[in-house]
């Protein structure tokens, strides 16, 4: 019972790692979501097939299995990643696959006449995507992206199992050293909940920001 401030610091350090993983994983997931989501809508069959394989593969197995595979099997192929890189990679690729479906759905839900109007005013494919389709599709993606970000935050707990010192790992350390179970776990549950509230709050703000001025359009 001696050194609670020390244990507290340990858990807060873990919280930092968790936050770091969430942010880096989300960044990778965002990139993958757009690459694979737009890839699925590409006019090249090979690109479409590649995107489908990526999405189905990462959605078909859980983050846990992927993480262990990245961490334990890739070294035999000569690719050794430190736990943080393995964690970010598995989290980002996994959540990116879910995000890709969101991107695809949102882009497809932009009405057909918008595409026709773009062709009528002679926009290139790039211009069409950049200036007409994506600005309309983005507000549709945000709520689901928010949910995905929370799923990502929750999935970060799994990295504690490949010895990455995130919040869950530190809580286990505190449990092992003090024998107290309730305090560390209650504390990290609270911290996780605060983080997920922060994410959903941030997403709501972003949503207001992106939909500003769109009321008259839709």
């Amino acid at each position: 019972m001696a050194d609670w401030s020390g244990y507290m610091t340990l858990i807060l350090q873990g919280a930092l790692v968790t936050a770091q993983l969430t942010v880096m994983g989300a960044a990778l997931a965002l990139v993958m979501a757009f690459v694979a989501g737009l890839g699925r809508l590409s006019r090249f069959a090979a690109l479409r097939a590649l995107a489908v394989v990526y999405i189905e593969f990462f959605r078909g197995t859980s983050i846990f299995v992927q993480l262990f595979w990245v961490y334990f099997v890739l070294p035999f192929a000569g690719i050794t990643l430190d736990p943080l890189a393995a964690g970010v990679m598995a989290l980002g690729l996994n959540v990116g696959a879910y995000g890709a479906e969101v991107v695809r759905g949102a882009v497809l839900s932009v009405p057909r006449d918008q595409y026709e109007a773009c062709i009528a005013v002679n926009l290139t494919r790039m211009q069409r995507m950049r200036h007409v389709i994506l600005p309309q599709a983005l507000p549709l993606m945000l709520p689901t992206f928010g949910n995905n970000a929370i799923e990502l935050l929750k999935a970060t707990a799994v990295v504690s199992l490949i010895s990455l010192t995130d919040m869950t790992f530190q809580a286990q350390v505190v449990r092992a050293q003090t024998g107290s179970t309730l305090i560390p776990f209650a504390m990290i549950l609270g911290l996780y909940f605060l983080m997920s509230l922060a994410i959903s709050g941030g997403m709501r703000w972003l949503e207001r920001r992106v939909t500003r001025g769109l009321d008259g359009v839709r």
Partner: peptide, 11 residues
């Protein structure tokens, strides 16, 4: 919903 399943299992 806002906290990880793994931690809930530990609890």
């Amino acid at each position: 919903r806002g906290t990880p399943l793994l931690v809930q299992l530990y609890v």
